[in-house]
Simulated scan of single mutants.
Amino acid sequence: MPVIDVQTDTAALTLTITAEFAAPVERVWDVYANPRQLEKVWGPPEYPATFVDHDFTPGGRATYYMTSPEGEKFGGWWQFETIDPTSSFTFTDGFADADLLPAEDMPVSRNRYEFTATATGTRAVYAAIFADAESLQKVLDMGVIEGSTAAINQIDALLAA
């Protein structure tokens, strides 16, 4: 499984997931740059994602929804801040309503995804910072660790295809 470490730091308001992939950095980067590939791995397997928008540029925005096994849709959005091709990108991540507009009553996090070449492939570090302890705890209670781990662990199959 790609996920090798998960750390939460309630004092620093962070959640950090580290994964390793047996593929070059450029190939792992492509998963995030291409919305059709990202759809195959964003969210747990039983909640497939559909990206409606994916403007992977500084200042660009992505909107998506995940569909539950019962057909219920859960929206989300990203606002990209920086893009350093094949090495990192930063973005704000939040929940969205049925119209894919930010859900004001839900947590928002600032994220940095970093990709580094290793002797056997790529190390990815997914770091999220929350505004307050309540927001971090809310996503933890919602199962973000389990859901994110399941999602990231799907990437190997996509990379091998």
Rank of each mutant, 00 (worst) to 15 (best):
Q7T: 10
T118N: 02
F91T: 11
L38I: 02
A62W: 08
Q154Y: 07
G76T: 06
E46W: 14
L13D: 00
L15S: 01
S88T: 11
Q79K: 13
D84T: 07
G147R: 02
G75L: 06
Y65I: 01
R110Y: 13
T118S: 01
I17T: 12
P85I: 11
Y64C: 10
A151Q: 01
T92R: 15
A128H: 03
T63R: 07
W29F: 06
T57I: 06
G94E: 03
A49W: 11
G43N: 10
D53R: 14
D84S: 08
S87F: 15
L100T: 14
E46K: 15
F130P: 01
Y64R: 11
A128Y: 04
V144P: 03
T92S: 13
T149C: 01
A11Y: 00
I152P: 00
V125E: 06
Y32Q: 10
F91W: 14
F130M: 02
D105M: 01
A12C: 00
T57C: 09
L15Q: 05
I129M: 14
Y113M: 09
T16M: 14
V25E: 13
D9E: 08
M106A: 05
T10I: 05
D97Y: 04
Y65M: 08
D105Q: 08
D132A: 01
T67D: 02
A161Y: 11
G121L: 09
S87M: 15
D30W: 11
V6S: 08
W78T: 14
S148N: 15
K73G: 11
T57E: 15
E114H: 12
S88E: 13
A33D: 00
E104P: 05
D55Y: 07
T14P: 05
A103N: 05
D9M: 05
E104Q: 11
G76W: 05
Y65T: 04
F89W: 14
P44R: 15
Y113E: 08
Y126I: 05
Y126G: 06
G94A: 06
D30M: 15
F89T: 03
R110M: 07
Y47P: 02
